[in-house]
Amino acid sequence: MNPDEQELSRLVRSKDPDGIRCFYDRYAGYLAAVCSRYLTSEADVEDTLQESFLLMIDHMGRFEYRGAGSLKAWASRIVANQSLKLLRKNGRLTFLEDLPDLEEEEDFSLPDIPPGVIQEMIRSLPDGYRTVFNLFVFEKKSHKEIAALLGIKADSSASQFFRARAALVKKIKDYLKEQNNG
């Protein structure tokens, strides 16, 4: 069974068991990666993915196919929202402000690094940095939207994003140094 996204959404909407299994098999790995970018606890990832899949299956009627990749993007948004909900509920969204500013080089460019390594670097960021970074970079939200979502000021969102980016640059450089020495 290898339906396209539009057909797959139709099958899930009609609660076809094979369609639902196909939907799970196709996106579980990707959505697990999305979720673990937000949540560092394995138990939280498991719970959030469980809730997210049930939500997606129950509310597939609300999905409107808009071209290739739209179903994946829709599912990804649901997982991100559920992850955010859990972070808010568990009070894990702390925004570190009392740290010295990290200087970022103007001409830094992203080297070729395995995606898994980048993923782990993002996961290792503090909760607040990581959340703002994910929302800005992967969900393409503005700082104003992020501020409304997280209950912070837009300036704080921008500050958190800047710090997250600078921290990532440092991690990338440290990684490259290790690779060169190794």
């Binding site: 959505l31 697990a32 990666a33 980048i118 993923q119 992967f138």
Partner: peptide
Amino acid sequence: LLQDYQEAPP
């Protein structure tokens, strides 16, 4: 970079 990156589901 991460659009096709996957992890093993729990």
